[in-house]
Design a protein around this nucleic acid. Structure first.
Length: 896
RNA sequence: GGGCGGGUAGCUCAGUUGGUUAGAGCACUGGCCUUACAAGCCGGGGGUCACAGGUUCGAGACCUGUUCCGCCCACCA
């Protein structure tokens, strides 16, 4: 096909050999497999840190449902990564799976209809079958913890396959050699090492204290996992008596069920109404328990009745008062959220359940034992409504008015269904409250994209109230490497924990034996027992940079991969994932974990609500890829700026698909032009390349700030408007040799077209990896020696610098203007762009005419004008054209 | 209550350090089968830039206030 006998010609393709339409599905699978086979996504450990670009990829929760939101944010990262790769960076782009934690437990419980009891013995070779909907009503099968964990592994490994298939389908250029899971051997080892390191450094402690507790999951939770939900409640006005007087006062409470847990009464110190009461004792209704009345700045005179009861514990403020006033502990809510049995004693007792009338108190309280909070509330209110003389003989019923409905925020575990309770339990904490300023400083050293997301971090850190509770009373997670000595009665000595040595890790204290003990000493008096708590999942996932680098397990590798370059994530987990990762990195190594944080927005449904499984508005991604192709879906994702929430509009996928088609066709056309190899010398061609230089500069600059969306926008606009609609149309005839120009002009046109396509393909490659590589391989792979576009270099101004600048920088604009002016006229005349003109007289300013002379041939040729004349006229503005005369060639009559 | 972001065409959004007549895509609409592409091309209509002040020769952009929407946070009796 090509004639190499005398002169070199461009390697052109035969368009007839290509399918009419681009088969996205087939090409995607073929190309992705080829990338994998070539290993072009692999990290090269031999290259230095400054040549390496390290990504701290979010490990997706595999037990969650896949939706377009996943594709959205992961595509953002991939676009950034692909551009960095083209810039010559050695890419470290791992992917982990977040499989431990509550979502997995919940999924596994439902999947097999099972529950856990730590007392059940392990059954080797246990067979589990997926439960049917009919099984859901059957009582769940009770498993040992190890069997349950096996089941978790089984389910998550299946889930991971589904995720991985989708990631490959969408073309994520992840190095699959770097795959990990947050529950795997290495992650467990590093999480436990992290714990021991924090312990060595004195940042970890174990204390018994009131902690936020979810009564359904029956675990402690951290402040970061708590959210406020507005709930309707009611103020109950209750009459309290004052000890040793006839006085009474009224408190307002939304939690009358906690009356038995009342340990004090407080009002604002300046509140004249209650000043005389301070220092006296109040008598609670029903239970007749005397409690101190004390002043507190925290009490708001405007709220309720201005005086309130302090319980153990209704909320965080109760905890504060309890601590400050050294009040008694009357814990009536148990870990399962039901009221615990207690025994009331006389006032001389000091066990916390002193009543002026213990018998009567007991009678009331026994009616509440075992009830949940709501049931207890109903029961107590009924008693308060009916019982005369409840706080002191002679008083009426303590409920002074019908409860008044109010709506107020109530704390919930973000995954929970019932309000959190404060329950005094023993938990492990990482001390952070005393390090707020350091955390703020570290956060300020990180570049947040967009910048205002840094204020989310600041905001959260400044308002931090509690140390980080890292222990969870759950099963599928990383265990604490901790045991306790048992005393002679078999009680664990929590003040004397035994820690695993670093060499032992990872350990499962319920299986592995504490150092210095033998297996037969487990759970016997004088022996040892395991800490059964597991880490907060964030305790492990806040180590993702270290898990990927190997950290203490591989210090050399760690040094070359830590800190990372970017941390992509979404904004709702700034207070958890980002915050804890910064905290860990600071505490372990006094370093920031990454230079940049890239925040992706949310996907909103057309009603602008966040897409989430619970709202039932989730769009699954697979059908979108099948319908529009992976590139089109990526195009949609890459169109959103960092941090901006984006409405899900299926229209955008169609636009993306159209762009892919256009690239296919334009590539087919450009590469099918054959001509002798020639330098780019023609004025218009040089003017076009000059425009291209500006585009390369703009796109590159955007990518420096990881702003792929403006880069894509500029590239797309240029491709569509300047390249295909203008330049390509203007040089078509010349490239085909129809213009009657010489071979140099023709070669110049083909060379410029090919260079334009080549550069544009590379500018699109990070966003549209499939179609760009497809077209690349038709000719440019051989030409450049880069088999895949993803091995080619990102375009630079320098590589275009060999092409001479146009003699006038306005040449391209002028050609464009003339082209549009003439086309507009043709359109008005009802003629197609392709219709030849028998005559055209174009008038312009003399200054314009000078520039126009250089490109006149291109315009005349492109508009197929037989007889052309240009006229100079001072009255016309520079850069404008007026059509003095135009004659459209009559339509040829169809033959036959 | 505190903090952050936003309000630009019917819809989704660009709009650089203030600078001609405010842009794109979609949608709507007229024309065109034109040798890469009808999954296309050439045209057209459509905006009091949330509101009110201010700074300036000049404001969509800067300042102040108001208002609406969204998000994050807050001790929730």
């Amino acid at each position: 096909m090509t004639d190499n006998n005398t002169k070199k010609t461009f390697h052109s393709i035969d368009p007839e050999q290509l399918p009419k339409h681009f088969d996205t599905q087939a090409a995607e699978q073929r190309l992705e497999a080829d990338w994998e086979a070539k290993g072009i996504h692999h990290y090269d450990p031999s290259r230095g840190r400054d040549e390496t670009f390290v990504v701290d990829t979010p490990p997706p929760t595999v037990s969650g449902s896949l939706h377009v939101g996943h594709i959205f944010s992961y595509t953002h990262t991939d676009v950034v990564v692909r551009q960095q790769r083209m810039r010559g960076k050695n890419i470290f782009y791992p992917l982990g799976w977040d499989d431990n934690g509550l979502p997995t437990e919940r999924r596994v419980q439902n999947f097999f209809n099972v529950r856990v009891d730590v007392k059940v013995p392990y059954e080797p070779n246990l067979e589990l079958v997926e439960s049917s909907s009919a099984d859901a009503k059957k009582p769940p099968r009770i498993l040992s913890r190890p069997n349950f964990i096996d089941a978790c592994h089984r389910v998550t490994s299946e889930d991971e396959k589904v995720f991985k298939a989708l990631w490959r389908r969408i073309g994520l250029s992840v190095d699959w050699n770097q795959e990990y899971a947050t529950i795997d051997h290495k992650s467990r080892t590093l999480a436990q090492l992290s714990f021991l390191d924090l312990l060595d450094k004195g940042h970890v402690c174990s204390v018994t204290a009131p902690t936020m507790w979810d009564v359904d999951f029956q675990t402690a939770v951290a402040q970061a996992e708590v959210e406020d939900r507005n709930q309707v409640g009611a103020f109950h006005d209750l009459q309290f008596a004052v000890e040793g007087s006839d006085e009474t006062f009224t408190i307002a409470t939304t939690r009358p069920e906690l009356l038995a847990a009342c340990v004090g009464v407080t009002a604002h110190p300046d509140d004249a109404r209650f000043k005389p009461l301070f220092g006296k004792r109040a008598i609670t209704p029903l239970f007749r328990v005397p409690v101190p009345i004390f002043p507190s700045e925290l009490a708001d005179p405007e709220k309720g009745t201005g005086i309130l009861m302090v319980c153990t514990f209704g909320d965080q403020t109760d905890v504060t008062w309890w601590r400050e006033q050294k009040l008694k502990l009357r814990q009536i809510i148990g870990r399962n959220g039901r009221l615990l049995p207690v025994t009331f004693n006389g006032v001389t007792s000091n066990e916390g359940w002193e009543s002026l009338d213990p018998e009567r108190a007991q009678k009331f309280y026994d009616g509440l034992v075992g009830k949940n909070v709501n049931q207890a509330k109903t029961a107590v209110v009924e008693m308060l409504r009916q019982v005369e003389g409840a706080a002191r003989e002679g008083l009426g019923a303590p409920l002074l008015a019908e409860p008044k409905k109010i709506e107020r925020p109530v704390k919930f575990f973000e995954k929970g269904d019932r309000p959190l309770e404060f329950i005094s339990t023993r938990q492990w904490f990482v001390r952070l409250i005393d390090k707020k300023q350091d955390l703020l400083d570290y956060g300020a050293r990180i570049d947040w994209h967009p910048t205002h997301m840094g204020s989310r971090f600041r905001n959260w850190t400044e308002n931090l109230q509690l140390d980080w509770c890292i222990s969870r009373q759950r099963y599928f997670g990383v265990q604490f490497p901790v045991w306790y000595r048992l005393d002679a009665e078999g009680n664990p000595l929590h003040d004397e924990p035994i820690f695993a040595t670093k060499q032992m890790l990872p350990v499962d204290p319920t299986v592995d034996v504490a150092p210095g003990f033998t297996a037969d000493q487990r759970d016997v008096p004088g022996g040892f027992t395991a800490e059964t708590d597991v880490f907060d999942t964030w305790f492990t996932s806040s180590l993702t940079p270290q898990i990927a680098s190997g950290w203490l397990l591989d210090p050399v590798r760690h040094a070359s991969l830590f800190p990372a370059d970017i941390r992509p994530q979404s904004h709702e987990i700034i207070r958890t994932w980002a915050f804890y990762t910064i905290a860990k990195s600071m505490l372990h190594e006094a370093k920031i974990p990454w230079a940049h944080v890239l925040i992706s927005g949310w996907i909103l449904d057309p009603d602008r609500k966040k897409m989430s499984k619970s709202k039932g508005n989730v769009v699954t991604p697979l059908h979108l890829i099948e319908a529009h192709g992976a590139d089109a879906v990526r195009y949609w994702a890459a169109g959103a700026r960092l941090g901006a929430d984006t409405a899900f509009k299926e229209d955008v996928f169609k636009v993306g698909k159209r762009l892919v088609t256009k690239l296919y066709n334009a590539g087919k056309y450009v590469l099918s032009q054959s001509a002798e190899v020639h330098p780019i010398t023609n004025e218009l061609d040089r003017a076009f390349i000059d425009r291209l230089r500006a585009l390369v500069s703009t796109a590159t600059k955007s990518f420096e700030d990881f702003e792929f969306a403006p880069a894509l926008d500029a590239t797309e606009r240029f491709f569509w408007s300047s390249f295909t609609d203008t330049y390509l149309e203007l040089v078509k005839a010349r490239a085909r040799g129809e213009a009657g120009g010489d071979e140099a002009d023709r070669g110049s046109a083909v060379a410029a077209l090919r260079l334009g396509l080549n550069v544009l393909l590379r500018l699109f490659a990070p966003v549209l990896p499939f179609i760009t590589d497809e077209v690349w391989r038709w000719a440019f792979a051989d030409e450049t020696g880069k088999a895949s576009i993803h091995q080619a270099a990102w375009p630079t101004i320098e590589e275009l610098s060999a092409i001479e600048l146009p003699s006038n920088e306005g040449s391209f604009d002028l050609a464009e203007k003339a082209w549009f002016t003439i086309n507009k006229k043709k359109s008005e005349l009802g003629a197609s762009v392709g219709r030849p003109l028998t005559k055209l007289v174009l008038a312009m300013n003399p200054a314009t005419a000078k520039v126009f002379a250089k490109i006149q041939t291109e315009i005349v040729t492109a508009t197929r004008t037989h007889s052309f004349e240009s006229i100079e006229r001072e009255s016309i503005e520079a850069g404008e054209f007026e059509i003095d005369e135009i004659e459209v060639e009559p339509k040829e009559k169809k033959e036959g």
